[in-house]
Amino acid sequence: MRIMVAVKRVVDPNVKVRLLADGSGIDLTGLKMTMNPFDEIAVEEAVRLRELAIASEVLVVSIGPDKATETLRTALAMGADRGLLIKTDAPIEPLSVAKLLRAAAIEEKPDLILLGKQAIDDDCNQTGQMLAAQLGWAQGTFASNLAVEGDAVTVTREVDGGSQTVRLVLPAVITVDLRLNEPRYASLPNIMKAKKKPIAERQPADYGIVVEQRLEIVRLEEPAGRLAGIKVGSATELVERLRSEAGVLS
């Protein structure tokens, strides 16, 4: 079985982003970038399936600028076999990402595609589902467990109020949630080894795809911050204030 994993380069989740002074965009200069945390989980799962000999090859794909090769290298250092960079400097929406991944999938013929459930920058939570639709494949979102059995994969999904288990016919697309696994660190020896693993490079035009912007960004704002309130001296004072001042207790 061959697995394709999509990985995105995003701002480190521990960094608080700010707008450019003129509000025209997000100030990314000098910010620490990293692999989208959910994608790390997807890579980890693929590598585990590879180590269990359930998968024979793990291909990682990233769509973005040259710098995204660093994200691919991280995935290779975690244990993926080879990388594919689809190079574009333009901002790119999930719909176009899905189209490019579909094109790559048609060429690479994976049996399973893993993605993070959402990217922590645009918080869209769309790409995997769109890709599944475009390929006409089954989808399993928010996976917290998965087991490959023959030509199907059983996925436990984190859903509101509990969990749901579904069985998907392969090939399928799965988006992963935080509790699927704990991703390994890219170890120093593996980082050096990853240097020798191949990364192919393509342009969207190679697939005959024009990257378009369906959404126009009209405005960006930082939400009005909440102001710190007061410190109360005791539990009794707290209850009293919640009742008389805030009016949230009857």
């Binding site: 769109m130 639709a133 959404l215």
Partner: peptide
């Protein structure tokens, strides 16, 4: 979780960008 799972699939079938 169900809205988030099904709607992007709908959007892709209609070839439009979802607004999440």
């Amino acid at each position: 979780t169900s809205g988030k799972s099904v709607m992007p699939r709908v959007a892709a079938l209609l070839d439009v960008m979802q607004i999440s």
